[in-house]
Amino acid sequence: MGKLSKLPKIYLIIIFIILYAPIFYLIFYSFNSGGSMSNFESFTLDHYKAVFEDTRLIVILINTVVVALLSALVSTTIGVLGALAIVFMRNKAMRNAVLSLNNILIVSPDVIIGASFLILFTLVGIKLGFASVLISHIAFSIPIVVIMVLPKLQEMSPSLIDAALDLGASKRDILTRVIIPFIKPGIFAGFFLALTYSLDDFAVTFFVTGNGFSTLSVEIYSMARAGITLTINALTGLIFIVTVTLVIGYYFISRKAKTPIAGVRK
């Protein structure tokens, strides 16, 4: 922080403390043998043990991860195809229209997405539960993948494809051996973002989940409404480690991809 004088430094430090305080506060009390988040009695790992012994919670954890992985996988596939479709569109007005439609789900509030999907699923007759949650996660992740892949595709020189065609490559070869390798970093970045969006989602899942199925966010919500349980704190500790690992992984991938963090273009 060479160029900064004292006051801005203090300001930044305060902001950082406030941003991290709630997280470390939760993790700190996850080691508390007392039952509350106000006085620390003695160190214990009981709450972590409780997390692993609670089969219901483990099932929910597995559900959450399965939904996240599957939805990220499917949405990445569809998103990449969508980005290809947009790039190959020659009509500029049409392309802009499709892009605006693409961005609607990114800017819509979660409540709207949740409510409208609830109507949709009820109307079509999809039972609320695993399927409805998975489908909605796929649906709201697709535009994010498109946004991540598109800049990479636009960066690609058309002469690469022409060269491949001249050298006798088939359409399939062009896709799998020219385009996909070139946009790979964008694809990975999209996959990671889709994964985190799915893991983090509460509002949409809350609307479309039935009685029998729950993800972590929804479960924490109902636990938190009932009051303080230190099991949630232990869960935070575990999730924090996983998230930091994911973020660092994403950071290195996006650095390779030269696409800055969280989808913001340079």
């Binding site: 966010s217 924490i220 938190a224």
Partner: peptide, 14 residues
């Protein structure tokens, strides 16, 4: 990127 619910829950305690 930490789950939104967890951060909100932290404030219930804080």
């Amino acid at each position: 990127w930490i789950n939104l619910l967890l951060k909100t829950y932290a404030f219930i305690g804080l």
